Amino acid sequence: MKNILIVDDDIHILHLLNIHLSEAGFNVSQAKDGTEAIGILNRQACDLAVVDVMMPFMDGYALTKEIREKYDIPVILLTAKSQIEDKELGFKSGTDDYLVKPFEPKELIFRIQALLRRYDKQVEGSLVHFRNTTINKNNYEVHIGERTILLPLKEFELLYFLASHPMQVFSRDHLIEQIWGIDFEGDERTVDVHIKRLRQRFSKLTDDFQIKTVRGVGYLLEAKQG
């Protein structure tokens, strides 16, 4: 069950949204201002935040920026203002959607459901699974069983790219362009060094995948499924 955080200094709005969201099958956490909302986010996982713009201590724009910096969840801003300048501020602060008061609770629920579907697809698309191995682009971690491995950035990006295209052969030039960029001033040996390090790290940890050399061409990742 998804947990929705509602942040509004109007207790009547909190009460109304709590009723409708609970009836729609969501768990609901409530905060009366931005400071209280951050406290809730620090203590528990939330899947989406609904944030009012006009609040004491920390307004909705500032809270949205704070959420964007620390938590990877979608945000819907609520406001009584409909001017384009206010919408611009909202989207610049990082909101995913914008709803002007007064609104129908059903419309908010539709928007929440749409954002959660979109976000879930993005998260799912950022994970690569091979048997007991998960390569997670969201937090740049590799999980093998109960063990978590943190890699240097370029090693992770190289592994994730190869793992996202199993059994596909890539030349060293192609890998340099994908991982280091077309302006990279190094040479093909950079790829070889990173491949060697990845092999050394994982050869004794798992046989879920292997990075193989295709002579005269480049590298591919061979993975075991199931």
Rank of each mutant, 00 (worst) to 15 (best):
N139V: 04
K154D: 01
N138K: 15
W180A: 12
P152R: 12
Q168S: 13
L159N: 05
K101A: 04
E69Y: 03
I149F: 00
S82T: 10
F156Q: 08
W180M: 15
V53K: 15
P105C: 05
A31H: 01
V7E: 08
E23T: 04
I73Y: 01
Q168F: 03
K81H: 13
M1F: 06
L151R: 08
R117D: 06
V169R: 09
R172L: 13
E104P: 09
T64H: 10
E146M: 15
N42H: 05
T35M: 10
G226Y: 07
I149L: 11
R199E: 00
E85R: 04
D207M: 06
I11P: 01
E146Y: 13
Y140V: 11
V169T: 13
F26K: 03
V142K: 00
N18F: 09
V100A: 08
F26G: 11
L99W: 02
E88Q: 12
E85V: 03
V191Y: 04
D120Y: 02
G181F: 02
G94L: 14
S171A: 07
L150K: 06
L153C: 03
V142R: 04
F91K: 11
E85I: 09
E85K: 10
D59C: 12
G226M: 10
G90T: 07
I73S: 02
R189Q: 12
E185C: 07
V7Y: 08
V128C: 11
L175M: 03
M55T: 03
N18K: 07
F202G: 11
P56M: 08
F57T: 15
N139F: 02
F156W: 01
L108F: 07
L159R: 08
N138C: 14
